[in-house]
């Protein structure tokens, strides 16, 4: 049953993104920003956590999940005071961000862009 929920919720979030790209004239980076922001805001309002509990990766793998992760980390840092709030978000998402930068840099150095296929 977990898999079904992951599929449905993950798919549904992608559909929202697809509609944003097709129906409005927003460019892809703008759509990504909107999705991450929505994840942060929904988690701040404590709406996203139940979705994650239900769908697992279905809610964590799409980009709102990235925003959710950042917001969750920041909120969890509250007991440690100001420093906890500032470091909490990035700390929670550190694995993804670091590998995206490091591995991405390596990939960019190794490969060349291809022309028209």
């Amino acid at each position: 049953m977990d898999y079904v929920w992951a599929f449905i919720v993950g798919g549904a979030i992608c559909v929202v993104g697809q509609i944003l790209m097709d129906a409005t004239k927003l460019t892809t980076p703008r759509v990504l920003v909107i999705l991450v922001l929505s994840g942060v805001i929904l988690q701040a309002l404590q709406i996203y956590q139940p979705i994650v509990d239900l769908a697992g990766t279905g809610a964590r793998v799409p980009l709102p999940g990235f925003g959710y992760n950042l917001a969750k980390g920041a909120i969890e840092g509250v007991p440690q005071g100001l420093l906890g709030v500032i470091t909490g978000g990035v700390k929670a998402a550190a694995g993804g961000i670091s590998i995206a930068i490091g591995w991405g840099y390596l990939m960019a150095l190794i490969f060349n862009p291809k022309s028209v296929r």
Partner: peptide
């Protein structure tokens, strides 16, 4: 194509529709 595209639109390998 490759020079204009990266100047005016998106990088070649960027996944977009």
């Amino acid at each position: 194509y490759c020079t204009a595209e990266r100047q005016f639109r998106m990088p070649l390998e960027h996944g977009n529709q």
